[in-house]
Simulated scan of single mutants.
Amino acid sequence: MSLRGVVRRAVGSLVHRLWTTVRAAGAVSAASPAGYGFRRLGQGACLAFPVGAVFGEAWIEIGDHTLVGERVSISAGMGPGVDLGPGSIVRIGGSCSIGRGSHIVGHQSIDIGDHVFTGPYVYITDQNHVYDDPETPIGRQWPRNNPVVIGSGSWLGAGAIILPGTRIGRQCVVAGGAVVRGEFPDHSVIAGVPARVVRHYVPGEGWLPPHLGGGRAEPAGTRSAPAATGGVRAEPAGSVGAA
């Protein structure tokens, strides 16, 4: 190996060792100063470095042994320094794994149960802009909140979008790229744009598609994001898609 190659290899090794040290030192845990601002940051919980945009920590709870991946943004409220009242806004349970680059944006109430895993770049929010006034730019109209609940044991695939008002049951699978809005029962496989139940577990029969009864447990009138054509009928007035 040439001298140049030896030097490059040595420098590369040094850089990787330094980066490993920086990542370990920059991670946020209950024992680190950056963790003190959270309403609760459980034992063994960790926000990996580089940390995403995090504010409103006093209204954020993260359970024991939950891993929040690199560049994950978690926020409560419109911005730092706002008094959001006595209760917490964003609650993430124990033993969860939040994929890198995801966003959890809470203004009223986001509840994520225990043992919930997400892929990267998942977006979860309980607030969206409205379009009540057709003459005012949508981005300038006052947003509307609707609580979100994600049941324990669920898995959210890469790039899934969870919109305000969504309630996902326990042990559910959300397919990658799904745009989810509405109420979905326990043990559902949820996919599509707009998302719908494509499989449901029926005791004694297993996982069934809707045409074999797998969709029976889906509540009547489940609200999903608007379809490409005619979808406005299923969407409450004054609500819009992902912010």
Rank of each mutant, 00 (worst) to 15 (best):
G221I: 00
H16Y: 13
W142I: 08
V173W: 13
D83W: 14
G5M: 12
A76V: 01
R140C: 12
G177M: 03
A195I: 06
D114S: 01
A228N: 11
Y201T: 10
D111Y: 03
G69E: 00
R17P: 00
G221P: 05
L163S: 11
R199C: 10
Y121H: 13
S73T: 00
R233N: 06
G214H: 09
V130Y: 07
V189P: 08
R39K: 12
P147W: 10
L47R: 04
A76F: 07
A237N: 04
R181L: 01
C46P: 01
V6M: 13
G94S: 15
S152V: 00
S75K: 15
P209W: 03
D133F: 08
I74Y: 12
H65F: 14
A48I: 04
V130D: 06
G165R: 09
V28N: 00
E70P: 06
S224K: 04
T21R: 15
W207L: 10
A242F: 14
S97E: 07
V51C: 14
A25W: 15
C46R: 12
V174K: 01
F55L: 04
A217S: 07
T20A: 15
S29G: 14
E183Q: 04
M78L: 12
V22T: 07
W207C: 06
P86G: 02
G37C: 07
Y131V: 10
M1D: 09
F38H: 08
P194I: 06
G56E: 11
C96Q: 05
S239W: 15
M78H: 09
E57S: 05
V148A: 01
G192N: 04
R4T: 13
I138K: 09
G204H: 07
A24P: 00
S29L: 02
A158M: 13
G182W: 01
V72S: 01
V51T: 15
G204L: 03
V148S: 05
M78N: 07
R8T: 12
G81S: 08
F38V: 10
W207P: 11
H107C: 06
F184N: 02
G52K: 08
Y121G: 08
V122P: 02
G37S: 13
H129M: 09
E183H: 06
T118S: 11
A48Y: 09
T21K: 14
S75W: 04
L18C: 13
A217G: 03
G215F: 05
C46W: 01
S73E: 06
I104V: 07
V240Y: 08
G42V: 08
V116E: 05
Y121E: 15
S29H: 02
V11C: 08
A25H: 08
